[in-house]
Design a protein around this nucleic acid. Sequence first.
RNA 1: GGGGUGUUGGUGGAAUUGGUUACCACGCCGCCCUCUCAAGGCGGAGGCUACGGGUUCGAUCCCCGUACACCCUACCA
Length: 519
Amino acid sequence: MIRVRFAPSPTGYLHIGAARTALFNWLYARKTSGAFLLRIEDTDLQRSTDESTRSIIEGLRWLGLDYDEEIVFQSANADKHRAAALQLIEAGKAYRDFTPKAERADANVKQEIAERARAASATGADHRSNPFRDLSLQESAARAAAGEPFAVRLKVAPEGRSTFADAVYGAQERDYSEIEDLVLLRSDGHPLYNLSVVCDDIEMRITDVIRGQDHLTNTHKQILIYEALNAAVPRFAHLPLILAPGGKKLSKRTHGEIVSLTTYRDAGFLPAAFRNFLALLGWAATGVQSGSSVAPGDGDADAAHPPDERIGEIMSLSEMVENFSLERIHRNPAIFNFDANNPKRWTDDKLIWMNAHYIRTLPLEELLPLVRAELEASGLWREEYDGDRRAWFARAVDLIRERFYTLKDFSGQGRAYFGDEFEFEEAAVKKNLRKEPRLKELLPALAARIEQTEPFTLETSEASLRAYADEAGVKAGLFINAARTALTGQAVGPSMFEVFDLLGRDASARRLREAARLI
RNA sequence: GGGGUGUUGGUGGAAUUGGUUACCACGCCGCCCUCUCAAGGCGGAGGCUACGGGUUCGAUCCCCGUACACCCUACCA
């Protein structure tokens, strides 16, 4: 059985790239009827926080990615990792390195690495020239027993090469001479990343490791550890990275909240929409695109892919699962567009479009609870929306959702539909009310007509308004636009008579009168 | 310094294991619809498939080189 895992380190919020890795692991598990496990890699005690762990779990729940089995906390396995390292020493596959630990500042590691490499090539030193590499086991054990601190390094063979077939990137190989004797255990006894990952993956019986491409070259080192431990090597699939605009690495540090999953949740994105968008970063469901190569009148040619069976970009979770395959993941990095300085289009255009698409096409029953949550959060929710006015609420949401991009719009632009306290947009007041001074008298008169309209429906409200426009000698459009601003505070919105009908006679008339005061 | 991976219009992707005018979505522009704005429908602009060679009757697709980007190279993860 296929077993995959998502293994984030809880050192901050869950970001976009990690979320996609989780999604792909989940899709693969569900597609293959395998297991999707969650492991929190909290070995870096300095940086790991419970809050991050909670946000990761919340993020997965928000995305609808349920995990099987108990969460594994890597820190709980540290003793096992240490034991594994010590066992490798006994087996002669690792050695104690008594070289004093070199202190280095995080800031210039890259530079230091390059300098060290240059120096090494100048002196002819290679990765196997560690003086403690061939120390006898007895002497090594004796020095350790005497209390001398040591790190544990894996003994990498001087000759040969490591190879593996990546499900995405294909055949990979790396000469052993490129790989140093990697440290398994720090001199303070703390197990290091590569060891911990391998030990845990073995213990969790992971069959397929699906993770970011940034680990592609690390994989060779991990394979060496698997081999030293005599464990079966899993299959690997590396995912192309998601980059920031300009091809830069996505980073919490430089890009901040804008790459955090919670930002999108809090900004009113739908999990289904966000998931769909993420799935398209680095993966295409199929080569068959809706609308492509359709020969009109040639029914047979298209029989293999009837229009409704073609896979477009909009996919439900089950469609994603159905169509998912590692083979269709491609190799080049994807850029996730965002611009913190552009309030209107602060994140990827396609993501915004997709969210709007979901808002307007989701079955109403699925959207309603999401809108309810938004209204509750902004104090606009009323219990009657779930009781007497349930049908009204559904109709209101259905009417206004067409123009909305995020759930936030229901409490923002949509505010006037759910209560009397709303703001007037200055531009709308200017354009639709103040531009025609006569409206100061006409609006209350129109309100009176509205009040006399019986019954008050979509049709009768329109008839009344148009009739009064004729009498007053103005265009109906003047009243319609003025009414839109009077009733909703805005210059844009649904068909005005729908709004009259929805808000009802009394509220409509009242707001028309009140708006006259703004002129 | 070394190694790895990648490069299709602004963005995400497609192109049936080389085969006609490189396709779709988002974005952009225009038209239609119209009480506004969206949505929807229709149409358009935008690419010498990073660049330079090679193989081939033919290359987005295969090979080599260059450039650029990213990743790894740490007693970080």
